[in-house]
């Protein structure tokens, strides 16, 4: 959690520095923000037992939380679809279209949230090969 907040603070700092009238970025601040950020690649998509943060969620017995967070924070990259079991093409498609121009990823999150809240879970979205996984 500490690293997460440090990363957020660094992000604000980067924005402030970048708004100054100069032509050089604060590389130190950027590197620090990256270093302190949660590495989504550490989830080793599909193997949460070996990932640091993923392991914590596995211990909680709640992969749906991870899916929801990935969709909310990084849905535009398609990472949530890869985590939930999909082909590399899905990730590429999301990355190239920005999560279906933001619309598809928004709907992904809405339907996941509904499944999370009403207790039905996100099981139907795992290993789903369809672009529109909620159809």
């Amino acid at each position: 959690m500490k690293k997460f907040f440090l990363a957020l603070v660094a992000m604000f700092a980067i924005t402030a520095v970048a708004s100054a009238a100069n032509y050089t970025a604060d590389d130190s601040a950027i590197d620090a923000a990256i270093e302190n950020a949660i590495d989504v690649n550490a989830f080793n998509l599909g193997n949460t037992a070996t990932a640091p943060l993923g392991a914590a969620y596995v211990a909680m017995g709640n992969n749906d939380v991870v899916s929801l967070l990935l969709t909310f924070f990084l849905g535009w990259t398609g990472i949530h679809r890869m985590y939930m079991g999909s082909t590399p093409w899905m990730w590429i498609l999301y990355l190239l279209t920005g999560g279906g121009f933001g619309v598809v990823v928004l709907l992904d999150f809405v339907f996941e949230l509904i499944g999370f809240v009403d207790g039905s879970g996100l099981g139907k979205f795992y290993d789903n090969p369809n672009i529109l996984m909620w159809l």
Binding site: F5, L8, I30, I38, D39, N41, F73, L74, I79
Partner: peptide, 11 residues
């Protein structure tokens, strides 16, 4: 390439 958003980074 490292992409940083909302405190999370992908590589």
């Amino acid at each position: 390439i490292k992409s940083l958003a909302d405190g999370k980074v992908t590589t």
